[in-house]
């Protein structure tokens, strides 16, 4: 009996899992298909699942905008923002995890609470700061803003991963004559590498997909892929074929990247929950 019950439960869970996965995946799948349709096919009712694929949308997208320019901007912004965030977050998380003070917990919560503030609430001050610092429409400006918005999450994740490293191992390093810096680089970082990798990955993805600041702080020079997509939703009407082609192009690199690193990513996203 127990076996049967278990079996039924397992089938239910499997079906649910597939259902959710397909439901989440469907928009991306549909976007991918629509990118290969003509504009007429793209808006036809009922929607066409089988059609003669065409590359015309892609051709037009490449003709109208410099895809590589946007991609390079996105890569630069993501990599710089992630790199700087890690460089700041590693020492912060190290001290919070291994030398906590009375206020460590509340500091962490406060940092996280800043994420709950809607970005638009600080749009004007940030815009003015960026303008006065001559950082509008620059890769550096966008990278700084992305870095700062992700910093709380990066610190939180690293903090959680560092906490899994037993403190006596670091103390052993200190007894062996390691300075704080050596203790961090030669003992802690190698041990927390999987955690750091998944944190970096998450930060890259968040930066890659960040649209609000990209649209508000950049125009042409530093515009990343999210701005590239937005440029295809024009006031004259939506051209779903081209929009889909552009979107597919924008998400393709990070999708492939994420596919290869999904193991790390799952670990990173369920941090603390799964040991």
């Amino acid at each position: 009996m127990a076996f049967k019950v278990n079996c039924g439960k397992q089938i239910a869970v499997t079906l649910l899992g597939w259902g959710v996965a397909l439901w989440v995946f469907f928009p991306i799948f549909w976007m991918f298909l629509t990118g290969f349709k003509s504009e007429v096919q793209a808006v036809s009712t009922p929607p066409q699942l089988f059609f003669k694929p065409t590359l015309s949308s892609y051709a037009e997208v490449f003709e109208r905008a410099n895809y590589w320019h946007f991609t390079i901007n996105t890569v630069l912004v993501s990599v710089i923002a992630t790199g700087v965030a890690l460089a700041l977050a590693v020492p912060a998380a190290y001290s919070m995890a291994f030398m906590p003070s009375k206020r460590t917990r509340s500091t962490l919560l406060w940092m996280l609470s800043t994420r709950m503030l809607p970005s638009v609430g600080v749009l004007v001050p940030i815009y003015l700061l960026a303008r006065n610092a001559h950082l509008l429409d620059t890769v550096l400006g966008l990278a700084i803003v992305d870095m700062l918005t992700n910093l709380p999450i990066v610190i939180w994740m690293l903090f959680t991963f560092f906490r899994e490293v037993p403190a006596p191992i670091l103390e052993a390093g200190r007894m062996d004559g390691a300075s704080r810096w050596q203790e961090m680089t030669m003992v802690l970082l190698p041990l927390a590498l999987p955690g750091i990798a998944s944190t970096a990955l998450l930060s890259l993805i968040l930066c890659w997909n960040e649209a609000f600041w990209s649209l508000n702080l950049t125009s042409s020079n530093a515009a990343p892929l999210t701005a590239f997509i937005a440029s295809f939703s024009s006031p004259e009407g939506l051209f779903f074929g081209k929009l889909s082609a552009a979107s597919t192009l924008a998400v393709a690199p990070i999708l492939v990247f994420g596919w290869f690193s999904q193991k790390q990513l799952v670990r990173g996203l369920t941090f603390g929950a799964v040991k």
Binding site: P168, E171, A172
Partner: peptide, 20 residues
């Protein structure tokens, strides 16, 4: 004086070996 420079060596309850 820093722990590493006191001329001491310590064996921990959990051994605290470097796992890597």
């Amino acid at each position: 004086i820093e722990p590493g420079h006191r001329g001491l060596a310590m064996v921990f309850q959990s051994y605290a070996l470097y796992p890597h």
